[in-house]
């Protein structure tokens, strides 16, 4: 895992450096100093340490990252770790809620469609699932804002007040973004759970369970579900990791200052430190989640434990 993490840091560092664009020019443009001379450009590059050998810059950044210092933003000068500390909780709040909703709603719906295959419930929920996977969440967000914000005047359309300063206000603000984030997550959970459960329900050991005279509930929950959940857990693990990166579209539509917007604005302005910081944290969380998923396999499928 540590080797993978090191590889992640190398990829993050060098990929960002090789993207087109020079952060100094972005910085200078922002300073509106179009009259600047090349010498002044070189001085600023030197001051920011960007004229050093790339490998020296990398090891310098890596060493600092181990101590929790992800460097300072080239553009706004603040510590990147402070930005992440402020934005990660907001992104996690929305993302984890959407994640939980996708499990609570998506998996039971997927089971229901598999168990009642061919019934109207299956057709209805599968159609909804297909719709949910294909609907552009940006468009969905605008549509919700139009109806629930402008037409019905029921919900606020932008911003994110702290839940501890204004709990109900926060709740009203996050209903639409969380719904938008949940829709594709629920839909994909329904579709994957259905196909996975359908496969498991045709296994010999399930037929044996039915022939023993077990009730449907017992067959589904005690025998089929664990195996049926393995691919779903993998999918949900990836979803959880993506949550940390933030949803750029939803954060943009609902004007929520989360990790996604931080990453995108960092990319637009070639703010190396910001992009590297966000990518590193996302990478660490992805690795951690993958580890949890691997561990969960052994609980779900004893063959993994003994294999």
């Amino acid at each position: 895992m540590i080797i993978v993490l090191l590889l992640v840091t190398i990829i993050v560092f060098f990929v960002v450096r090789f993207l087109p664009g020079d952060p100094i020019l972005m910085y200078l443009t922002s300073e509106d100093l179009e009259e600047i001379t090349q010498e002044q450009v070189d001085i600023i590059r030197h001051d920011l340490g960007l004229d050093r050998n790339l490998f020296i810059q990398y090891f310098d950044w890596l060493g600092n990252a181990f101590t929790g210092d992800l460097g300072n933003s080239i553009i706004h000068r603040g510590a990147v770790i402070d930005d992440i500390k402020r934005r990660l909780p907001i992104t996690l709040h929305l993302g984890v809620l959407a994640f939980v909703i996708s499990i609570i709603i998506g998996i039971p719906m997927g089971i229901a469609t598999a168990v009642r295959r061919g019934s109207w419930i299956d057709i209805f929920l599968t159609s909804l699932g297909n719709l949910g996977v294909t609907v552009p969440i940006f468009w969905l967000g605008i549509l919700l804002i139009y109806f629930f914000g402008l037409k019905l005047d029921l919900l606020p359309i932008y911003g994110y007040p702290s839940p501890f300063e204004d709990f109900w206000g926060n709740l009203r603000h996050i209903i639409m973004p969380v719904f938008c984030l949940s829709v594709p997550a629920v839909a994909s959970a329904v579709r994957l759970t259905r196909s996975s459960m359908l496969e498991v329900l045709q296994q010999d050991y399930i037929r044996t369970a039915w022939s023993k005279g077990l009730r449907e509930r017992a067959v589904i929950t005690k025998h089929a579900l664990k195996n049926g959940l393995i691919p779903v857990i993998t999918l949900k693990g990836i979803t959880l990791a993506n949550i940390v990166g933030g949803s750029v579209l939803i954060e943009t539509v609902f004007s929520i200052p989360g990790m996604g917007r931080l990453a995108v604005e960092g990319l637009f302005s070639k703010d190396y430190a910001v992009v590297q910081g966000v990518m590193l944290i996302t990478g660490i969380v992805t690795l951690g989640v993958n580890l949890l998923i691997d561990l969960s396999y052994s609980w779900l499928d004893p063959r993994v434990r003994y294999g």
């Binding site: 500390k85 990660l88 909780p89 907001i90 996690l92 709040h93 993302g95 702290s162 839940p163 501890f164």
Partner: peptide, 9 residues
């Protein structure tokens, strides 16, 4: 955890 972090932000 997310809510606490959020509040601390």
């Amino acid at each position: 955890f997310a809510m606490i972090l959020s509040a601390c932000a």
